[in-house]
Write a protein that binds this DNA or RNA. Structure first.
Lengths: 225, 225
DNA sequence: TTAGTGCATAAAGAATTTGTAAAAAATAAA
DNA sequence: TTTATTTTTTACAAATTCTTTATGCACTAA
């Protein structure tokens, strides 16, 4: 899994440095902007997973930046500000800020609030369902259905099918499949593959001897449709 | 549109009164509880749209209440506490609190944070009572029934079943289950899991050697249906 | 035709994984 | 303390999955 990206929009270099160190040591990738304009540009180009926004920017008010971002940016925006007056807090939250922290802040708390915000980013549970005609693969649940009925697959069979499904339409060479599923040591055991394709076909194809999903590409490999 | 309901769990009557006045004048309906137990019960019965929870309760720690609620309650929980130390804040947020405010708080800010939390309240309804065919699990009472008859489970057995029920239909790996129930240190003790799945099956399955609820996914983990 | 190559399938054996019973240890209750 | 309950270990049986071998078919080229 790749690192989550966090964009820091703040004009104070010390704060940016402090955040950079803390965030990177916690496994995040950090992008930096020192003005509102640059921040908006970067958000549009890189689509970070979370934005930390300072209210006191040189070129334009942080409230304005927040408003502009919220037109299209749907993920978490945490406000970080020296302003501790209620009006600013209420305004920011009502403009769609996910959270509001006042400087000086405690890094542990900030990290916890970042975790909480990121958790909610993904919450509308996008069950990664993949449909291939009569075959339905649920990558989250690790289950496979044909015409609504659950099919029992062994773990290798599932891995193989998932590999096919993730490369639907593409021809996968024997070598490549063997390397992905069995590892580099067994790249030459083409017979494994034949056996497993056989059992998979028996389970997911309507007529296994006339496969419509796992197509043989003679001399090369297989293709999933 | 009917009024949104907010449950206040706090043992201080003054705070409850203050919140009641402020919330009701802002168009919310207010429910009140003065202990953790009462709060959990009320949440289960009334399913409020948001919960405001004080950490310093007389009967049990607010952190415990939060954890118990989060097993099934999916909407916003805002923590209100005199504790301003980082550990409490981090713990609460990591346990699923939506937000954390320290007393004394500014009502305008609280209201803004409530609005922000309610806006994000999109997750599907969680229910304290869960039905899986003949099995009925009550997350509030921590009780399990099969065809109406109470089943006696040890606490680990219950935790395991609750974990399964909260992830019904999806395959849970051995590692994941062990981490959730026994903690990070015992991730490799797969045998524990076998024994407990065995006893659980004996208690909830009609024919334990042909399980219909806890399905083995050989080489991977288990799946609950 | 006949040998050669690549693929499909069945089935036996090997290896791994899982289930179960029961004893030992730890914890909670009386 | 004693007793009861729950959890952790241990040992072995059962089931499942993976690997290997054998065989037949289809196609191609000499």
């Amino acid at each position: 899994m790749s690192k989550l990206e966090i964009l820091v929009i703040d004009d104070e270099p010390q704060i940016r440095k402090l955040l950079e160190i803390n965030l990177e040591s916690n496994g995040y990738k950090v992008l930096q902007a020192e003005s509102g304009k640059e921040g908006i540009l970067l958000s549009a180009n890189r689509a970070p997973d979370l934005i930390i926004l300072d209210l006191g920017l040189p070129d334009k008010s942080g409230h304005e930046v927040l408003k502009e971002l919220r037109v299209w940016y749907k993920k978490a925006i945490i406000i970080l500000s020296v302003q501790n007056n209620e009006n600013d807090i209420v305004l920011a939250l009502d403009n769609g800020a996910t959270d509001y922290l006042t400087k000086p802040f405690r890094t542990g708390e900030l990290l916890a609030r970042i975790r909480a915000s990121l958790k909610r980013n993904t919450s509308p549970e996008g069950n990664a369902l993949n449909l291939f005609n009569d075959i339905e693969i649920d990558f989250v649940g690790r289950t496979v259905k044909r015409e609504g009925d659950l099919i029992k697959l062994t773990s290798t069979e599932y891995d193989l099918l998932a590999l096919f499904a993730n490369n639907a339409g593409r021809v996968l060479t024997h070598q490549y499949i063997l390397r992905e599923i069995w590892g580099v040591g067994l790249q030459t055991e083409t017979q494994y593959l034949r056996v497993f394709v056989g059992t998979l076909r028996k389970k997911i194809e309507i007529s296994p001897n006339r496969p419509r999903h796992i197509i043989t590409e003679s001399g090369v490999g297989y293709r999933f449709v």
